[in-house]
């Protein structure tokens, strides 16, 4: 039943619920770390809060300012949502192979993530607001800096598994060992780069609230804002599930068992790591972030790849 797979499980509906759940989990975890309560009165323990936000934004007035480029401004949020949803279909969630998979889908995921950032820049530029233009420029700068160490570090698992497919990497981890044990450095680099790539808190420079209001999505309201917020939730799921499938073995449990529950548990752990970092750090300046990426992360990623190649020679 490929149709049911795409629409219900592990397709669109499941991912939608997962995205809302992850936003709730993230907000609750950050609130807990800041000694607050977080969303409380929307459903049990506020679990329906992201859903309520989404419905409210959909019902709000959708303003298109007079000065914007109408086509790009209206198309932007839809394209960004599609492009952030697409890589999720390539990630093995229920079994050891994904809904769609082919040799080289790791490269495809990287390509889609780059494309998404270019669309982000275009829609920021087309909203003709000074803040969103600055935000758009920062999005591009950050992508240029962090794409390179991310790609280099992601080749580590690919070299170990001798395959450029995420599903194959997960199957390799099922038969051999978790790649987190072999490449802890790579895991750290990928986590930092994903934070930057998906513009989460220590690297939320493009939408810094206190200096450029809300950065690249300052002009979006109503339905467009709802789609953009949903995109952010999907990106959170994407970041966590990339970490899970590259280094933690995806839906693989102990004793060669496979279940979506294992995937879910690992996903929750990864999201807790990400929200812990979000509560722990303040925002970097743009030059600090770029300097960090070029001076430390790229060489470290190269060292990781060299280690991956050398390790089998030293320890047979």
């Amino acid at each position: 039943m490929p149709f049911l797979d795409i629409i219900v499980f592990p397709g669109l509906l499941f991912l939608l619920f997962l995205a809302f759940f992850c936003e709730w989990l993230d907000r609750k975890a950050v609130a807990k770390l800041q000694n607050r309560v977080g969303p409380k009165h929307t459903g049990p323990e506020g679990i329906l809060q992201p859903f309520a936000d989404f419905i409210k934004l959909l019902s709000n007035e959708d303003i298109i300012p007079a000065a914007v480029d109408r086509i790009m401004f209206s198309l932007g949020p839809i394209l960004i949502l599609t492009l952030s949803l697409m890589p999720l279909f390539l990630i093995p969630i229920a079994g050891s192979s994904a809904l769609v998979w082919f040799e080289g889908d790791l490269i495809f995921i990287m390509f889609v993530m780059t494309l998404r950032i270019i669309i982000t820049f275009l829609s920021a530029w087309s909203s003709t607001n000074r803040f969103s233009m600055i935000g758009g420029m920062r999005v591009i700068l950050q992508m240029l800096a962090f794409e390179i160490p991310l790609t280099i570090a992601m080749t580590g698992p690919a070299i170990s598994a001798r395959s450029l497919s995420l599903s194959k990497i997960v199957q390799f981890q099922a038969s051999e060992h978790l790649l987190l044990l072999a490449q802890p450095l790579g895991f750290v680099i990928v986590t930092i780069c994903l934070l930057a790539e998906l513009r989460m808190v220590p690297f939320d420079i493009p939408k810094a609230k206190t200096e450029i209001v809300k950065g690249w999505f300052v002009e979006f309201s109503g339905k467009k804002l709802a789609l953009l917020r949903l995109t952010e939730d999907f990106e959170l799921v994407l970041a966590a599930s990339l970490m899970v499938s590259l280094y933690l073995g995806g839906p693989i449990g102990p004793w060669q068992t496979q279940s979506v529950l294992y995937f879910f548990t690992k996903l929750v752990i990864c999201i807790l790591i990400l929200s812990n970092l979000r509560a722990l750090f303040a925002r970097f300046r743009i030059d600090q972030a770029l300097k960090g990426a070029w001076k430390y992360l790229t060489p470290l990623a190269l060292i990781q790849v060299i280690l991956v190649e050398l390790m089998p020679m030293v320890i047979p």
Partner: peptide
């Protein structure tokens, strides 16, 4: 702030008037 925490009611402080109600 943590002592009163308006996020309990789903109220978030927004930066842009386009996002606020």
């Amino acid at each position: 702030t943590p002592r009163f925490d308006l996020e309990r009611f789903g109220i978030i402080l927004q930066g842009s008037p386009r996002h606020a109600d």
